[in-house]
Simulated scan of single mutants.
Amino acid sequence: MNTVVFRTIWLFCLIAYCGLIYLLSDQPVLPVPLVFNMQDKLIHATAYAVMAWLCWHAGRAYMSKIVLLVATILFCAFFGASDEWHQSFVAGRDASIYDWLADVFGALLLTLALWKREVVVSNRK
Protein backbone atom coordinates (compact mmCIF):
# COMPACT_ATOMS: atom_id res chain seq x y z
CA MET A 1 0.00 0.00 0.00
CA ASN A 2 1.17 3.50 -0.64
CA THR A 3 1.77 6.22 1.92
CA VAL A 4 -1.47 8.10 1.22
CA VAL A 5 -3.50 5.00 2.06
CA PHE A 6 -1.64 4.52 5.36
CA ARG A 7 -2.13 8.19 6.27
CA THR A 8 -5.83 7.89 5.52
CA ILE A 9 -6.14 4.71 7.59
CA TRP A 10 -4.44 6.34 10.62
CA LEU A 11 -6.69 9.39 10.32
CA PHE A 12 -9.80 7.23 10.00
CA CYS A 13 -8.75 5.21 13.08
CA LEU A 14 -8.24 8.42 15.07
CA ILE A 15 -11.66 9.77 14.07
CA ALA A 16 -13.34 6.44 14.83
CA TYR A 17 -11.60 6.24 18.21
CA CYS A 18 -12.70 9.77 19.10
CA GLY A 19 -16.24 8.75 18.14
CA LEU A 20 -16.01 5.69 20.38
CA ILE A 21 -14.90 7.81 23.32
CA TYR A 22 -17.79 10.19 22.67
CA LEU A 23 -20.29 7.30 22.57
CA LEU A 24 -18.92 5.80 25.78
CA SER A 25 -19.05 9.20 27.48
CA ASP A 26 -22.68 9.54 26.43
CA GLN A 27 -23.67 6.50 28.50
CA PRO A 28 -25.11 7.18 31.95
CA VAL A 29 -23.21 4.23 33.45
CA LEU A 30 -20.37 2.08 32.15
CA PRO A 31 -20.36 -1.53 33.36
CA VAL A 32 -16.75 -1.60 34.59
CA PRO A 33 -16.25 -3.57 37.81
CA LEU A 34 -14.17 -1.79 40.43
CA VAL A 35 -10.98 -3.80 40.97
CA PHE A 36 -8.81 -1.22 42.75
CA ASN A 37 -8.89 2.36 43.94
CA MET A 38 -8.18 5.01 41.27
CA GLN A 39 -8.87 2.46 38.52
CA ASP A 40 -10.85 5.03 36.56
CA LYS A 41 -7.78 7.29 36.34
CA LEU A 42 -5.74 4.42 34.87
CA ILE A 43 -8.52 3.79 32.35
CA HIS A 44 -8.54 7.47 31.39
CA ALA A 45 -4.75 7.59 31.03
CA THR A 46 -4.73 4.43 28.92
CA ALA A 47 -7.57 5.60 26.69
CA TYR A 48 -5.81 8.88 25.96
CA ALA A 49 -2.47 7.17 25.46
CA VAL A 50 -4.16 5.18 22.70
CA MET A 51 -5.57 8.42 21.29
CA ALA A 52 -2.08 9.95 21.36
CA TRP A 53 -0.70 6.91 19.52
CA LEU A 54 -3.31 7.29 16.77
CA CYS A 55 -2.88 11.06 16.60
CA TRP A 56 0.91 10.75 16.35
CA HIS A 57 0.71 8.30 13.46
CA ALA A 58 -2.04 10.27 11.71
CA GLY A 59 0.06 13.44 11.76
CA ARG A 60 3.65 12.27 11.49
CA ALA A 61 3.86 12.69 7.72
CA TYR A 62 2.70 16.31 7.91
CA MET A 63 4.72 17.86 10.75
CA SER A 64 8.17 18.08 12.22
CA LYS A 65 8.74 15.96 15.33
CA ILE A 66 8.52 18.85 17.78
CA VAL A 67 5.38 20.28 16.17
CA LEU A 68 3.84 16.80 16.16
CA LEU A 69 4.71 16.41 19.85
CA VAL A 70 2.92 19.64 20.76
CA ALA A 71 0.00 19.04 18.37
CA THR A 72 -0.62 15.53 19.70
CA ILE A 73 -0.62 16.63 23.33
CA LEU A 74 -2.83 19.64 22.59
CA PHE A 75 -5.27 17.59 20.52
CA CYS A 76 -5.66 15.02 23.29
CA ALA A 77 -5.90 17.70 25.99
CA PHE A 78 -8.59 19.65 24.13
CA PHE A 79 -10.53 16.51 23.23
CA GLY A 80 -10.34 15.38 26.86
CA ALA A 81 -11.60 18.78 28.07
CA SER A 82 -14.46 18.72 25.57
CA ASP A 83 -15.28 15.16 26.62
CA GLU A 84 -15.45 16.13 30.29
CA TRP A 85 -17.65 19.09 29.37
CA HIS A 86 -19.86 16.74 27.33
CA GLN A 87 -20.19 14.40 30.33
CA SER A 88 -21.44 17.28 32.47
CA PHE A 89 -24.65 17.17 30.39
CA VAL A 90 -25.14 13.38 30.59
CA ALA A 91 -27.42 12.14 33.38
CA GLY A 92 -25.47 9.91 35.75
CA ARG A 93 -22.08 11.33 34.67
CA ASP A 94 -20.08 14.28 35.87
CA ALA A 95 -17.15 16.33 34.70
CA SER A 96 -13.92 15.94 36.65
CA ILE A 97 -10.70 17.91 36.45
CA TYR A 98 -8.94 14.81 37.79
CA ASP A 99 -10.23 12.69 34.92
CA TRP A 100 -9.00 15.35 32.50
CA LEU A 101 -5.60 15.42 34.20
CA ALA A 102 -5.42 11.62 33.83
CA ASP A 103 -6.30 12.02 30.13
CA VAL A 104 -3.52 14.56 29.63
CA PHE A 105 -1.04 12.51 31.67
CA GLY A 106 -1.64 9.39 29.55
CA ALA A 107 -1.34 11.33 26.30
CA LEU A 108 1.76 13.17 27.53
CA LEU A 109 3.58 10.00 28.61
CA LEU A 110 2.97 8.15 25.38
CA THR A 111 3.71 11.16 23.18
CA LEU A 112 7.00 11.80 24.95
CA ALA A 113 7.92 8.12 24.53
CA LEU A 114 7.11 8.26 20.80
CA TRP A 115 9.08 11.49 20.39
CA LYS A 116 12.06 10.03 22.27
CA ARG A 117 11.95 6.93 20.07
CA GLU A 118 11.89 9.06 16.92
CA VAL A 119 14.84 11.14 18.14
CA VAL A 120 16.88 8.05 19.01
CA VAL A 121 16.11 6.36 15.68
CA SER A 122 16.94 9.48 13.66
CA ASN A 123 20.22 9.92 15.55
CA ARG A 124 21.27 6.37 14.65
CA LYS A 125 21.05 7.15 10.93
Rank of each mutant, 00 (worst) to 15 (best):
M1E: 12
F6Q: 14
F6L: 15
I9K: 09
W10L: 04
L11W: 13
F12N: 06
I15A: 14
A16F: 14
C18M: 15
Y22P: 03
L24T: 13
P28S: 12
P31T: 13
P31G: 08
V32T: 11
V32E: 08
L34H: 14
L34I: 11
N37L: 13
M38F: 11
M38C: 04
Q39Y: 03
K41L: 13
L42M: 06
I43Q: 07
T46D: 02
T46N: 02
A47T: 11
A47M: 12
A49H: 10
M51Y: 02
A52C: 02
A52T: 01
W53G: 01
W56P: 05
G59Q: 08
R60P: 01
A61C: 14
M63E: 06
S64C: 05
S64H: 09
I66A: 10
I66S: 12
V67W: 14
T72L: 09
T72C: 12
T72F: 02
L74N: 06
F75W: 09
C76T: 13
A77D: 03
F79C: 10
F79W: 10
A81S: 10
H86G: 01
S88I: 08
S88D: 11
S88R: 07
F89H: 15
D94F: 11
A95P: 01
A95N: 00
A95C: 12
S96N: 14
S96K: 14
S96R: 09
Y98E: 15
D99F: 05
W100Y: 08
D103C: 06
V104Q: 04
V104L: 13
F105W: 06
F105M: 07
G106S: 02
A107R: 07
L109S: 02
L109E: 00
L110S: 08
L110E: 01
T111L: 00
L112H: 11
L112Y: 05
A113Q: 07
A113F: 01
K116A: 15
K116G: 11
K116C: 12
E118H: 07
E118L: 01
E118A: 15
E118M: 02
V119D: 10
V121Q: 11
V121I: 12
V121L: 13
S122I: 01
N123W: 09
N123C: 14
R124Q: 11
R124H: 11
K125M: 13
